[in-house]
Design a protein around this nucleic acid. Structure first.
Lengths: 239, 239
DNA sequence: CGCCCTTATTTTGCATACAAAAAGTGATTG
DNA sequence: CAATCACTTTTTGTATGCAAAATAAGGGCG
């Protein structure tokens, strides 16, 4: 609405998408590209053709390349000198590594959360927990994951360490890629829920040591699930 | 000083630096820029003027901007929408956060190293350790830091988790920035060396639990040193 | 003298242009 | 028929151009 004297759309530039958009293009592109990768629309090891992708995202190659560099630093994209870039492969070996680190980070977060979480925080986590339980009971996997994620993120928030949270988000993006292919058995699912019960209990009692242990185990179990998911599928045998 | 005379050098491109250089320009730029930031040549909160920096690094704005995006993801650079980028500020608060996370990561690495390190690895660490001792004895701070760093890096290698190592390197870059201003008191220095003695001992005995504790404490002490360094200086009060 | 508004200047953000590198393509030859 | 080489097309890497945003510089007015 503002400014607007600009009557005619002038010469060269001008993109249709520029409604009230205040964000920077390359930032939008980072998010779009990350989503494409995390949600598996761009499968692991897919080469990123700059011309095609730029067209698809409605931009030019320059912001796209900037976004690629950014995501390369996050590890979602691999740079191939003189050959562009590709979606980072999703290897079981890498997943193991990520989960080991995530275990340590979540344990740390749990410990910090036990010290720093306010009563309001705990109430909020409890609420998320019950939402999660409800979706578990109804067998709604996607919704379950959503609340599950939110609980873990809330833990991170309670830890009050933005550096920790940022690294967590980065690693979690890797895990999410894998999780989209996971088909949880009822048994494992029930177990994961049980673990969350214990975790909530430990938090309420502010038992940091126990929460750490629980989180590490929880992550280890998640790893098993992801590994199973990775072992089974591969609809198309890339490589 | 500026290009101007550039007599022939063919049509458009062609940089003198392209000897047998096989690396990609923007990768070189990433490393150069990171060094400038880590070593404090570009002080915290310095605005990165693209034209000036590109000239200084002997390239055009495009690869520079890509490098900036990469380093922004590492957290060394802050992106200011429509206002370019600046060297990330070096706040005590941030340092605290980084050290807490580093503590957890190094503890994890120590634990893993106790399981995975080969005898050859331990021999190598011992060698580095004695080099470090020698420089400590002679009061050679810079050299001491070098070997100190190498020991920590070697720990990471022994852990055999590349994901862990990568995150460590990223966080460590932040710490290094601060350390360049640290002026170690002899007392603290001696203490740090003593801690390294203990760490080596724990590794040799493969006592992962003790090593974890030692590393966490070691990091906590390092934080104190860095905080002191940050509290004192600021030679020039920017802004 | 300070403040706000207008107008230059600089700087950023994005698009495009062009050369070098890689990937195809096809014909020739052993 | 596979392999190699010359040639074409595509794709990447970097530089440059141009418009919008931000910043600096005047200039009138209280």
């Amino acid at each position: 609405m503002p400014a607007t004297t600009t009557p005619i759309v002038s010469a060269t530039n001008t993109n249709v998408a520029s409604l009230a958009d205040r964000r920077l293009l390359h930032e939008t592109v980072i998010d779009q590209l990350r989503d494409l990768i995390v949600q598996g629309e761009l499968a692991p090891e897919t080469k990123l053709n700059e011309r095609v992708l730029a067209e698809k995202l409605g931009t030019s190659r320059t912001p796209l390349r900037e976004a690629i560099k950014f995501l390369a630093s996050e590890g979602l994209v691999e740079l191939l000198p003189n050959r562009g870039a590709a979606v980072a492969p999703l290897k079981p070996e890498k997943m193991k590594e990520v989960f080991v680190v995530l275990g340590a980070l979540e344990a740390l977060a749990g410990d910090l959360a036990c010290r720093n979480a306010s009563e309001a925080d705990i109430t909020e986590i409890r609420a998320l927990h019950y939402h999660m339980l409800a979706h578990h009971a109804r067998g709604e996997l996607a919704q379950y994951f959503r609340y599950n994620q939110q609980i873990h993120i809330k833990f991170m928030e309670c830890a009050g360490n933005e550096t920790l949270a940022q690294i967590y988000r980065g690693l979690n993006a890797h895990v999410k890629r894998a999780r989209y292919m996971a088909n949880l058995s009822r048994e494992r699912w029930d177990k994961a829920v049980k673990e969350h019960e214990d975790m909530l209990d430990a938090l309420v009692k502010r038992d940091g040591v126990r929460l750490q242990t629980l989180l590490r185990d929880h992550l280890a179990n998640k790893l098993v699930m992801v590994m199973e998911a990775l072992a089974i599928p591969r609809v198309e045998a890339k490589q």
